[in-house]
Design a protein around this nucleic acid. Structure first.
Lengths: 207, 207
DNA sequence: TAAAAATACGAGCGATGACTCGTATTAGCA
DNA sequence: TGCTAATACGAGTCATCGCTCGTATTTTTA
């Protein structure tokens, strides 16, 4: 089971892997600037210093570029989050917990503007929506696990509602976070945490 | 000064006004389904039962359709809000104030799905951004005025930050609100108000 | 009622963009 | 060193879309 769906098992050289990474970097930049729909595949190729033909040697269509980019984001995000999730996380005081969870995500979103651009894009195509799903699942599951460990007696539906609301709150505040200057960031970040904390405290408890 | 920018003062018949309204209705529907960029002007015309030529008799380009639609939304929103803003609003207990402010906007956003679709669209063109601005100003100014009346001693920058955060929180939660079924809505709406209230209480006071 | 103006149509123009294909170059492998 | 496959190119194809324009119909106006 090395291949999931009948692909002719093209052998990729180191050169090819590097090209793919360059193309994804370019795609991230162009998506961030133009959004998925307005971004042209030719522009992505050009930004990577490649020709359209080369781009389509690695990705079968525009959609797949977004999927691959999202997959890379998910992997990186998982890594960034993993570093911040010790086993003690559930027992922390709420403000400390928020620091642990929110700070890495803020850093990640500021370092990867294409991530939010892609997530926020109202691309209605079913496939683009599918590409986003793993990223959304990752964030949801992580928060849900954390909440479940912290307040095991909370009914599932209440916990899930709180998780969803917290995620949507954060996503709504992300433009402020991304747009903030380096100097303004601490104040904005603190306000984001205050908002999340104020909402979550009755659910999670302050301890 | 009945005309702002040298337009040849075309006389509009009642038939024309009606057509424009139909075209805007169609545009709202198509924008809501496809987003601004993917929506085609031919599709808008067709949805309104008109030809492309007819559409362009009333709007000089696609951009202007979005502007006109936004202007109509702003007018309607102002009306919906105006009905809910008595002079006593600033003195209300916070939960009651939230009811007064949030419920009409929720109703409006659910009744006009094109509004949020257009606002949330990451259309990078300067003109589309300009079209959104009045709507954003309307919401900001209204909240800001309310807050200023309620806590006059709060420094301007703190008040503005709270306004901006509250608006972004709400916008982030809007997809949940819009997507909720009729039965699920009260619970979601209550949670939205609880989130806003928890964040705003330290700023505005509970009374 | 006749002229003028507003409304209506829809085929089609020009531009753009996703994607292809014939061909050239480079790297792995026997 | 030859042979195969991966990488690279970019002009070109085809479909879509914003928008126009010649023309026909309906309403207002004089």
């Amino acid at each position: 089971m090395t291949e999931d769906t009948a692909k002719p098992a093209r052998k990729r050289q180191a050169r090819g892997e590097k090209r793919m990474a360059e193309l994804l970097d370019a795609a991230a930049a162009v998506f961030a600037e133009q959004g998925f729909t307005r971004a042209s595949t030719n522009a992505i190729a050009a930004r990577a210093g490649a020709s359209p033909g080369t781009l389509y040697q690695f990705f079968t269509n525009k959609q797949e570029i977004a999927e691959a980019l999202m997959a890379r984001y998910v992997a990186r995000l998982q890594e960034a989050q993993g570093a911040a999730s010790g086993p003690d996380a559930a027992g922390l005081p709420l403000p400390a917990l928020l620091d642990r969870v929110v700070d890495p995500i803020i850093a990640f979103d500021r370092a990867n503007p294409g991530f939010h651009a892609l997530l926020a894009d109202p691309g209605v195509t079913e496939e683009l929506a599918a590409a986003k799903r793993p990223a959304q699942r990752l964030m949801f599951d992580r928060l849900d696990g954390l909440f479940a460990a912290r307040v095991p007696d909370l009914p599932d539906d209440e916990r899930r509602l709180a998780v969803e609301v917290a995620i949507h709150m954060f996503r709504g505040l992300l433009p402020m976070v991304i747009g903030a200057s380096e100097e303004a960031l601490p104040k904005v970040a603190a306000e984001v945490k205050r908002a999340l904390g104020a909402y979550l405290e009755p659910v999670l408890g302050s301890g």
